[in-house]
Design a protein around this nucleic acid. Structure first.
Length: 199
DNA sequence: AAAACGATCTACT
DNA sequence: GTAGATCGTTTTG
């Protein structure tokens, strides 16, 4: 029972593709955070693809810096950065020096829900992890986990698959528009009818 | 060394 | 719906 998440960990090959292909496949997968003997787990219900080129609003546009260097590492690594007082987590896609990524935007609480409530100081279940900053707080994800390998069962954070893949008609797609210098290239994907999405 | 900049969240109207 | 909080990182002088 304790090892059920590790058993279904997703291998690197899953991520070695363009972000817009990986993003919808991540819906319905599980983000797992280990803390000692405890597991905090959420089902991914909303993501956003950031393409590896051509988007001035994306963090990868100007090339590597200290902040975003993990975007340029292997597919399946985590890119964790701070925005204002929050942390956000991306999954790196494609491969080395190709900085595409998928931002995880919302989770449906699945396991360790009491710990999530404590971390967030929020009781309402729909409100615990329905946003990219909120879910990092709920799972206690900080920048110390930047560049951790999400495909390794010994990592503190990894992604696994417990359910069958979603059908196309269970997924909605929307372009993100009207934000600062964005060029509308970020594709947001979410599970239709989920109560736990941020939009 | 100082200023500007957000891939956000909360609270309140 | 919108104002204000707030902070690591980058940019500028």
């Amino acid at each position: 029972m304790k090892k059920k998440y590790e058993k279904f960990i997703i291998p690197r090959g899953f991520y070695e593709s363009e972000p817009e292909n990986v993003a919808p496949k991540l819906l319905g997968k599980y983000l797992v955070k280990k803390e000692g003997n405890s597991y905090i787990v959420g089902k991914i219900v909303e993501v956003e693809a950031y393409l590896s080129s051509n988007d001035p609003a994306a963090h990868n546009f100007k090339g590597p810096t200290r902040r975003n260097k993990s975007l340029f590492s292997d597919a399946g690594k985590a890119y964790i950065h701070s925005l204002r007082q929050h942390c956000l987590i991306d999954v790196v896609t494609e491969g080395i020096n190709v900085p595409g990524s998928v931002l995880i935007r919302a989770l449906e609480p699945f396991d360790g829900i009491e710990l999530m409530k404590e971390n967030r100081r929020v009781e309402v279940i729909e409100n615990i992890s329905n946003g990219p900053g909120k879910l990092c707080k709920a799972l206690n994800i900080t920048r110390i986990y930047d560049n951790c390998d999400l495909t390794n069962k010994d990592s503190s954070i990894f992604i696994c698959s417990l359910d069958a893949d979603l059908e196309k008609d269970e997924i909605s797609i929307g372009n993100r528009i009207g934000i600062s210098k964005a060029t509308n290239l970020q594709l947001r994907f979410y599970i239709k009818n989920s109560k736990y999405i941020s939009t």
